[in-house]
Design a protein around this nucleic acid. Structure first.
Length: 414
RNA sequence: GCGGCUAUGGUGUAACGGUUAACACUGAGGUUUGUGGAGCCUUCGAUCUGGGUUCGAUUCCCAGUAGCCGCCCCA
């Protein structure tokens, strides 16, 4: 006989049972609410993109596409990829409407993204990510606004500023220093990668010398006061954001960042990871031709967000509750239809109402409603059906209120 | 791609190499024919797969598979 199918979801993906989905929705809703409070507009696109969108940035991307994405050939011999990130997609969309958009453009999206790699804590094969970008503004205020948006999002989840640290850096600062050494483009990349690992490396100077072919001396303390990075920090301070540190080793792997770079890091030792990462890019739409469009953006993932909320006990019980407000309990199956009719009255009055259609005894129905977190119940039998007067029981207090459906709906709404 | 750890009912755990694999929770039902949360009772339900060692393996060994955790990489 056939082998039984596994009930496990595909490797690195998640099932969202109702209690998980409640948390997921809470995260998405909070993201969306805060982004929109900053005037960001929502967009989305297909999860499928032509593979060339990710390949076209050079040999390193070739490797990335081949080894770390879901890429396949469709029936029309087109090579397609499940989107591993949103930035190329949004760049394509902005480039496509460049002449009709009125800049600055503030857009956000909550796409699901795929990467083919070994799952581990905080990183799965499918995750959802809040992506926020502002296009068409060069002024430092745009960098500051984006970081402030990330900050407000975390606070909207109930986080306090000491739960996370905002690490900022600027690639121009590092590149300015490195420009003295006459490095090739390749050496520059290797050097940035090395700087990113600086905290994990025993002898940074030695490794740097290997790459540059000469002694390298870099200042990792503070740029001069006129530098944009210092303006970012000052600006954040003006917005009341103080948990900011200069982090010279924050480079981020992505080659398209050209200026300000930032990362939000969880300060809890057991969840020592990045919650949000982003930065400024000069010309993201270069691939598509036309005038350059600069911008600044960030992404933050649902997996790390959830880890953060759990680590800091920020998920309250009502976040996880999905029960209806009211449950109507027919005494027996002969009253099921009458219960459905009654439920319609409550629903049209705006009360989330479910009917218990099980054939359990009414006592069990009460227990089930209570366990599920239902706030009110109405037992429906002969008497109620005849009189059209019902007893509304508050499961929290045990109080009963009698009246018509209309009166009781009002009572619940209060 | 590399390394470490783990694998027993749906969940969480237990079982010196030796009878019928135990306990709790959960599910179903009863106690209770119109009012719950407790108690008591009944009941469904498991040793990842394949080899090996042994009189005998849930237990020891090997391989596979899966999961978790690191590393690499990071979108």
């Amino acid at each position: 006989m056939d082998k039984k199918l596994s009930t496990e979801p595909y490797k690195g993906t998640r099932d969202f049972y109702p209690e998980d989905m409640a948390v997921e929705r809470y995260i998405f809703d909070t993201w969306a609410k805060v982004a929109e409070s900053f005037g960001f507009e929502r967009y989305d696109a297909s999860i499928l993109e032509p593979s060339e969108l990710y390949r076209s940035k050079g040999a390193e991307n070739e490797e990335l596409v081949n080894e770390q994405t879901y890429t396949f050939v469709d029936r029309g011999e087109r090579e397609v990829t499940l989107r591993p990130e949103m930035t190329p997609t949004v760049a394509r969309m902005v480039a496509g409407k460049r002449r009709e958009l009125s800049f600055p453009v503030r857009w956000y999206s909550i796409p699901n993204l795929f990467r083919y790699e070994r799952p581990q804590r905080g990183r799965l094969r499918e995750h959802w990510q809040l992506n926020c970008d502002m296009f068409g503004v060069d002024d430092v205020a745009s960098d500051i606004e984006m970081i402030a948006l990330g900050y407000r999002i975390l606070l909207a989840f109930g986080a306090s500023p000491k739960m996370f640290e905002i690490r900022v850096n600027d690639r121009t600062w590092l590149k300015l220093q490195l420009s003295d050494y006459g490095l090739s483009e390749e050496q520059m990349k290797a050097m940035l990668t090395l700087i990113d690992k600086r905290d994990k490396i025993d002898d940074f100077d030695e490794e740097a010398e290997k790459i540059a072919g000469k002694k390298v001396s870099l200042d990792f303390t503070t740029p001069n006061p006129e530098h944009r990075l210092m303006q970012v920090i000052e600006g954040l301070k003006a917005l009341g954001i103080e948990n900011v540190v200069i982090s010279p080793s924050t480079v981020r792997g992505f080659s398209y960042y050209t200026g300000t770079i930032f990362e939000f890091f969880d300060t809890a030792s057991e969840n020592n990871r990045s919650l949000l990462g982003g930065g400024r890019y000069d010309n993201l739409t270069a691939l598509f031709g036309g005038d350059p469009v600069s911008g600044v953006g960030f992404g933050m993932g649902d997996v790390t967000m959830r880890d953060f909320l759990e680590t800091h006990s920020l998920l309250t019980k009502d976040v996880k509750t999905t029960a209806p407000t009211l449950a109507i309990l027919p005494l027996d199956a002969t009253h099921n239809l009458a219960a459905e009719v009654l439920a319609e009255e409550f629903r049209s009055a705006g009360v989330r109402t479910a009917v218990d259609l099980s054939d359990r005894k009414v006592g069990k129905k009460l227990s089930a409603a209570s366990d599920a977190g239902v706030a009110y119940v109405i037992v429906l039998g002969e008497d109620e059906a005849a009189s059209r007067s019902y007893a509304l029981k508050n499961l929290g207090t045990g109080d009963e209120t009698k009246g018509s459906a209309e009166e009781l709906a009002k009572h619940i709404a209060r």
